[in-house]
Structure formats: C-alpha cells, structure tokens
Amino acid sequence: MNYNWNWSIFFEPAPGGTGTYFHMLLTGLWLTIQTGIFAWIIALIFGSIVGVLRTLPSKTAYWIGFAWVEFFRNMPLLVQLFLWFFVLPELLPRSWGLWLKQMPNAPFYTAAIGIGLFMSARVAVQLGAGIASLPRGQKQAATALGLTTLQGYRYVLLPIAFRIIMPPLTSEFLNTIKNTAVAITIGLIELTGQARSMQEFSFQVFEAFTAATVMYLLINIIVVTGMRFLERSLAIPGYITGK
C-alpha cells in the first residue's frame, strides 16, 4: 500500500479558514455530543411515558404504547430519518413544508428528534420490563396507602424500575450517541461528517478516522463512567442492585 502517513495533518489549516483540521474534528465532536444529548432527552421523556402506558391496566393505553413501540422499532433508523427529513415536508400543507425545509439547523433538529423517537421505543420496552419485574404487591401496597395511580408510579414503581434497568439504559445511551453518525446522510456535519470532509480535503483517510474513532471512544468512556457512578450512588442498600 502506498500511503503517506502524516500525523501532523491535524495541525495544518483546513480549507474554509476556520482553523486547523483538529479544530474541524472538534466542531464535529461538539455537534455529535449536542445531537446525542438532545436525542437522549427525547428518548427518555417519550420512552418513560410509553413504557408506563404499556403497564397500565387500560387497554387503550396498552395499544397506544404497543403501536408507538412497533412503529419506531420496526423501521431502520436511516429510513426514519429520510422520512422525517425528505418525505414529511412534502406530505404537509405547502407552507408548513416550506417552513420546515427552510428552518435553520433543520438537519440537527431532524436528527435529534428522529434518533430520539427511534430510541424512545427501546427505552419504553426496557422500562416496561423493569416495571413488570416488580412484585405485584408493590403496586397494591401503594394503592392501599391511598396513592393515586400517578403517585404510585411517581413515588414507588418508577424509582425502583429505573434503578433496575440502569445497566441496559447505559447501553441505550451509548447507542444514541453512536446512532448520531447516521445523521450524516441528511447533511449533519457531525464527527463522522467532519472526518469525511477532512479525508476529502487532505486525503489522510486513516488519520481522520483514527481521530474520529478515538473521540467516539472517549465520549462513550465518559458516559459509561458517569452512568456507573450514577448507578452506584442510587443503589439501594441490601437490595438487588446494591453491591
């Protein structure tokens, strides 16, 4: 292989005049972090609501939860992003569609919301399983005390269920961050996008993607460590998750 290694490429100015190649990658990294966190917040909010719906005695609630989960988890993420970004504006009334297309940062919002909703289905399934794993008596005890259904979830079921599903939830957080790379296809120049631009401008493909890999690894190590810390600090003494 005839490849010219050049590790100092990161300190050379990138075309565009905004700084070095390293700076370019950092911009991408920052966008990846923003998209990931925004998407994760959406996933947590909708996933929690839908996860709870799936455990309520109401048939209607169950079916809403069921439909939500099956819609968002049975389609490839890439297809979903295309749907939100390219198809949705065409389906809406003309003026709305136009507004959507001209919205500044449209790729960012589309990616964050699209990935967030996709991940919410997974959070919902895990939370539903977490709640279902609690002894039936817990809900009965909350009810017998006079707590309403909402209070029972708020003060009893959810605090325990979230602790139980903390480890798989960590994986979902990591997946959310990694899935932001798909947003390159709708024009979001996040970390993978910037690595590709760098490769196109400088032809240093290995350096560019090595750097991107290391950066992804770093964020995820930080997330894993943070989640582990959270898990430990929330552990219930003597209870299953407590060590």
């Binding site: 008596g137 017998a144 009893v156 325990i160």
Partner: peptide, 18 residues
C-alpha cells in the same frame, strides 16, 4: 381517599425498598 382510611398489611410486607 377511601383506601387511605383502611390500613392494609401484606403477606410479603411490600415495604418500598428504595
């Protein structure tokens, strides 16, 4: 409201573990 006025004790205690 009615349930709040009646105490109930369960076979498996059902204290809230957290």
């Amino acid at each position: 409201k009615l349930r709040a006025r009646v105490g109930m004790v369960f076979q498996h205690f059902e204290l809230f573990p957290h």
